[in-house]
Computed example of a mutant assay.
Amino acid sequence: MSTKFKLTLISILTYCIFVFLAIFLGFLSPAKIGITWTVFWYIAAAGIVYYLWFKNLVFQKVIYYARQLKLTQTDLAKMLPNLKESQVVPDPNKTNLIAPLFNFPLQGLDILNTKLSKQATEQGIKPFK
Results as ranks from 00 to 15, higher is better:
104 F>P: 04
75 D>Q: 00
96 N>E: 12
52 L>W: 12
18 F>V: 05
20 F>A: 07
99 A>T: 07
49 V>T: 01
117 S>R: 11
2 S>Y: 12
121 T>Q: 14
35 I>D: 00
3 T>F: 13
8 T>W: 12
17 I>K: 03
122 E>K: 13
106 L>W: 08
123 Q>V: 09
99 A>H: 05
128 F>C: 10
45 A>T: 04
41 W>E: 01
4 K>T: 13
110 D>P: 07
21 L>W: 00
119 Q>M: 14
59 F>R: 02
100 P>A: 02
119 Q>V: 14
58 V>F: 00
108 G>S: 13
84 K>R: 15
27 F>V: 00
75 D>A: 07
128 F>S: 08
129 K>V: 14
78 K>W: 10
14 T>A: 12
115 K>E: 14
38 T>E: 06
114 T>D: 14
108 G>W: 00
84 K>V: 13
14 T>N: 09
117 S>G: 12
98 I>T: 14
66 A>S: 04
64 Y>P: 03
58 V>G: 03
112 L>E: 00
109 L>S: 07
42 Y>W: 11
76 L>A: 03
100 P>L: 08
23 I>R: 08
104 F>I: 02
87 Q>H: 08
32 K>M: 07
128 F>H: 05
91 D>L: 02
1 M>H: 09
95 T>R: 12
24 F>S: 09
91 D>S: 03
105 P>M: 12
7 L>P: 03
117 S>L: 07
115 K>V: 10
70 K>Q: 15
86 S>K: 15
10 I>H: 06
24 F>V: 12
123 Q>T: 11
23 I>V: 10
120 A>E: 05
16 C>H: 09
2 S>H: 11
82 N>D: 13
5 F>I: 13
117 S>E: 13
41 W>T: 06
118 K>P: 05
118 K>E: 14
57 L>A: 08
59 F>K: 06
110 D>A: 15
83 L>R: 08
39 V>R: 02
36 T>G: 07
95 T>P: 06
78 K>E: 15
92 P>F: 00
46 A>P: 01
88 V>Y: 11
72 T>Y: 06
50 Y>F: 10
43 I>W: 05
64 Y>L: 03
37 W>R: 05
66 A>W: 05
17 I>M: 02
28 L>S: 04
49 V>K: 02
98 I>S: 12
10 I>Y: 12
92 P>K: 06
112 L>S: 04
129 K>I: 15
129 K>C: 15
76 L>G: 00
19 V>T: 07
107 Q>P: 11
28 L>G: 00
25 L>I: 07
54 F>S: 14
17 I>N: 00
67 R>E: 04
116 L>C: 05
54 F>P: 09
17 I>L: 11
3 T>I: 14
58 V>D: 00
63 I>D: 01
63 I>H: 04
115 K>T: 12
107 Q>G: 13
74 T>E: 15
113 N>Y: 12
107 Q>R: 15
48 I>P: 05
122 E>Q: 13
83 L>Q: 01
92 P>E: 04
68 Q>S: 13
30 P>K: 05
69 L>C: 08
37 W>D: 11
114 T>G: 09
